[in-house]
Design a protein around this nucleic acid. Structure first.
Lengths: 195, 195
DNA sequence: ATGCTAAGTCAACACCTGTTGATTTATTTC
DNA sequence: GAAATAAATCAACAGGTGTTGACTTAGCAT
């Protein structure tokens, strides 16, 4: 059950990391409001009090899970041309092997799960605007970049919602189905950009 | 502040309706977990106890807000051919004047807001599968109807998430922008169906 | 080995949650 | 008008929330 059950010997950094990992794990499955600090603490094998002590409270913990202050690379910071975008986003949706992509998608899930909580919402909205919508619109350029960025992100988030929150998988991902599915998404993103 | 401030004279049906309206109003803005019964009761101008009394509890109230038992028409029940779908969904996104469409979109927002709450989630998932994904796939037909249905719904929900949860509007909706935007969405849905 | 300090624990806080039983109030029926 | 009944209220519950201060313990330096 516990994440950091390996007996830590009074290492502040390690327990911090354990709490962070446990929190991430929980926020990945449920919303900000429905996840309790005691729950996270138990999962990390730590006393509840430490959370408020180390992160200043639940809100601070959540902010740190999102890596809002950290030097984590922006969700869409890599320099891409608009031509690479469809393929890039299709891969983002379909391939979980790539560790970087996987983490990026997990981040989106966390965002989606808690976005309707009053406290978490403000944190999330800022993050999405700054780190996703604006850079995306910048790389898109052209006539109505904001609208195009919206469409792209809408597809990405929509698929995320369906997959995780609604627990529905579009199609068996194995074999050539995966290739077909990825191609379809590529076309879809292409249409969103040029249509 | 209150919804049913017009002094009701001990009318069970009317107070039920007032509670339902208040609940709908709150669940439209926040998640299942973050909305309290006392909050709803205050908005309806009613004592908290009445909610549990009339609806059997918070969960029952939510279920009734969703109209899961009611004879509300299915979210996608209308007999449409696959050709009409792109235009239909584009209008669903863009036009709020139509009362029916407006209510349907509101329902989607409520679904999205609370889908990550453990208790509300199970209710919502069933509803989406039964009333949206399955009928949608049925009207689509063809090669991979489930995947196509997923794509359509993903776009719809993605836009919903961006609009409401992320509080981001794709483009100023007035003037010819609206027409352009609707055309783009139509193309997008078209690509999702045929691409 | 002995202090000293950082790390972790414990208990309690004040508040809020949904829910229930007893009670009061208004409305209708005889 | 009095009795009966439905509607609404009140107060309290048991349990949960995040957070805080005082306390204990482990690990390191001298």
């Amino acid at each position: 059950m516990e994440t950091g059950t390996t007996i830590r010997k009074r290492d502040a950094a390690a327990t911090r990391a354990a709490i962070l990992a446990a929190a991430r794990q929980r926020f990945l499955r449920e919303s900000y409001d429905s996840v309790g600090l005691r729950e996270i603490a138990a999962l990390a094998g730590v006393d509840v009090a430490l959370i408020s002590r180390y992160f200043g409270g639940k809100e601070g913990l959540f902010r740190e899970v999102l890596g809002h202050d950290d030097k984590r690379p922006d969700l869409f910071h890599e320099p891409q041309s608009v031509d690479e975008l469809p393929d890039f986003m299709a891969r983002l949706i379909m391939e979980d092997e790539d560790e970087d992509r996987h983490q990026r998608m997990e981040m989106f899930v966390i965002l989606l799960r808690s976005a309707s909580s009053p406290k978490a919402g403000v944190i999330i909205r800022d993050m999405v605007r700054e780190e996703v919508l604006e850079p995306l619109a910048a790389t898109i350029g052209g006539d109505h970049p904001e609208m195009r960025a919206h469409m792209l992100l809408a597809i990405l988030m929509g698929v995320g919602v369906l997959r995780t929150v609604m627990e529905a998988e579009p199609v068996e991902m194995s074999e050539e189905n995966g290739d077909m599915c990825r191609a379809s998404f590529r076309n879809l993103f292409d249409a969103a950009l040029k249509g």
